[in-house]
Design a protein around this nucleic acid. Sequence first.
DNA 1: CTAAAATCCTGGTGGC
DNA 2: TGCCACCAGGATTTTA
Length: 265
Amino acid sequence: MPELPEVETVVRALRKPLIGRTVTGVYVTWSNSIKTPIKELKNSLPGERIVAIERRGKYLNFKLASGRVLILHLKMSGDLLVESSKHQRHPHVRTAFSLDNGTELRFKDTRKFGRVYLVSDPAQVTGKLGPEPLSEQFTFEVFQGLCARRKGRLKSLFLNQEFIAGLGNIYVDEVCFRAGVHPLKRVDRISRAKLLELYRAIRFILNQAIKHHGSTFDYVYRGGNYQNRLKVYGRGGQSCSRCAKKIRRVIVGARSTHYCPGCQK
DNA sequence: CTAAAATCCTGGTGGC
DNA sequence: TGCCACCAGGATTTTA
């Protein structure tokens, strides 16, 4: 479940070992993940130098010297490792990029949901994404405009990457709790005051999670410890830390959803 | 148009 | 201990 904070953590960790490196080879064991013709990837990636690594929503963009962009999505169970080529690959490494200094960028992906693209224009992959919630451009006015005339439920809208890029199941539940808004509330019936609370909660929760290097779960990126600070996600049946009522777990749009019936109206 | 359901996947879990 | 059905979940695709 890597979401924005986990992907941001990965991006920051990869910059030092990867920027300036040149790809020397491509290794693939699960071609369903590769969304560019494999021949093209294997033929044209070697010789490319990585000049920058950026995050867009939950996507990682590796900018190459030619101007093309290698885009990865970790989906459910993806992780990226930089290891010596001599070090044996974990069996769940589905794609690897060997580099000019004897290391490899390894895409470990237990559940095989991950995706790899090589494109000339990243908009081909990420063009429809909504705004970056931590950018300066994402003001309250922008958020309010996006919410206007939306009839759907808050939870579903927040999970929609074309609405805001980067929120996922864990942090949506945490944002709704912090703002004190019920996740099933219709968006067009939320007051301006509560919208402001939601806007602030999005920025606060994501920033806090990044500060703690994201959350670590069964298959998710190692290292982070924000999972210990979650107030509702994964806590169905436990007592709310604010009002002591039992936290509920329900299914919304095939996603588990956690909220406190006392604090969230 | 929206919304719900199916799809892709595997390791872990709980029941028996 | 072994077997098996079942579950999680991001994004896309299909169905209603």
